[in-house]
Design a protein around this nucleic acid. Structure first.
Lengths: 121, 121
DNA sequence: ACTTGACTTAGAGCGCGCTCCAACTCCCAG
DNA sequence: CTGGGAGTTGGAGCGCGCTCTAAGTCAAGT
């Protein structure tokens, strides 16, 4: 699989894929073909998909790198990985709660404007 | 009210307050005392608090500036203001949904690690 | 008189996460 | 042989939202 194909499948750009690799997010750098081009496996795309999910949920690159390092270190890092994900989970939940609470005043303002607009006519 | 007091009350820094002013987020630049220092009113802090709420919910500075402009233009911008806030509301809701969905696979992974850790012992 | 401290400005710098550029190699089709 | 297209690299650049620096003013305290 070429970088363009992976880009297409994961929704990332080829630029970003190379950047992620440089950033230490890949479990191992994809091997190269005779022409020096990266050749990705199916497993790579699965890993990258996980990365995009973590990213989308707001995990910083640095934390993703730490997670990748734990995965590389093997099965005796399960506890650490779980802790990392649990910390992230707590962050996400807090963020959701924050957004919900901030939404309240947006709703309140919208309602206020609705009334004012009604009142004018 | 001095800038330091407003910073204290709103949780922003004095730097950020000046930045917001430069960015066109204030309804009007606070007047200055004899020494040239900004003097904020109670209404200013209320407006700034609203700004921080909008900001916390992810509204970009540019949108906040547009909103401030509408408020400055007076009461015949109610509809536009309402539309702006409704667009933002839709964004926030989408973000919350996105986070919730991304949370699922984090939960799934955590569960997976739990099982593996159990299995080892 | 001198220090301390709170403020002022214009403008530089920073951290994050990309995003792109220049210069190159390689391969294939016409 | 030529052109086009897809990849490679190191490193520069960008957009956002601050965050800070330098150099200065002013007022109060000792």
């Amino acid at each position: 699989m070429t970088i363009a194909q992976v880009a297409q499948r994961t929704g990332l750009t080829a630029h970003t894929l190379r950047y992620y690799e440089r950033a230490g997010l890949m479990l191992e750098p994809p091997p190269r073909g005779d022409n020096g081009h990266r050749r990705y496996t199916e497993r790579d795309t699965e890993w990258i998909s996980l990365l995009t999910r973590l990213r989308a949920s707001g995990m910083p690159i640095a934390a993703m790198r730490r997670y990748a390092e734990l995965v590389r270190r093997g099965q005796d890092t399960y506890v650490a990985r779980k802790e990392l994900l649990e910390a992230h989970r707590a962050d996400v939940i807090a963020k959701i709660e924050q957004l919900r609470s901030d939404l309240e005043i947006v709703d309140y303002k919208i309602d206020l404007y609705s009334r004012r607009i009604m009142g004018e006519q």
